[in-house]
């Protein structure tokens, strides 16, 4: 068994058009997963990690772990920076600390991305159920 490849990144979150469209009344639908249950990676990073567009990957931080679809970032090059649109997938793993100013640390948390072939990306509802259960 070969050791799984891993990619160390700094994770940021933010808005995208797709996420913005999807939050309008379709948060419980599959479209939301496709808009926000994704991670945009630098293409060279993807190559190094051995994942393709649409592959499921696991993103893990000190604060949690989540499965999302890998996407080629259109904004490259930005080696070592990964982007997950704002939403429940990102929030499962970002640094919650408000640094005593009320604002969680949505950008710049250290994360590790690993391929997760064969695993499934949860939809918003299942993700929530998992959170409440755990």
């Amino acid at each position: 068994m070969t050791e799984l490849k891993r990619l160390e990144v700094s994770l940021i979150t933010g808005r995208t058009i797709e996420q913005g469209e999807a939050i309008e009344g379709r948060k419980m639908a599959q479209g939301y997963v496709e808009a926000a249950g994704v991670v945009y990676l630098d293409p060279e990073d993807m190559e190094e990690l051995g994942v393709w567009e649409g592959d499921v990957v696991r993103v893990e931080t000190d604060f949690g772990s989540v499965l999302v679809y890998a996407r080629r970032s259109p904004d490259a090059p930005h080696r070592g920076v990964a982007f997950i649109p704002m939403g429940p997938w990102a929030n499962a793993i970002i640094n919650p600390s408000t640094d005593s100013i009320g604002m969680p640390s949505f950008k710049g948390v250290k994360a590790v991305v690993t391929p997760a072939l064969g695993e499934e990306v949860l939809d918003a509802r299942s993700l929530l159920a998992k959170l409440r259960g755990g």
Partner: peptide
């Protein structure tokens, strides 16, 4: 619930919540 970190959501899910929304 969609936009707060898991730690905050966890507490929110443990207390009585009232929502006024259209979706």
């Amino acid at each position: 619930v969609s936009h707060f970190p898991a730690k905050a959501v966890k507490h929110l899910a443990s207390i009585p919540v009232i929502s006024i929304d259209f979706h």
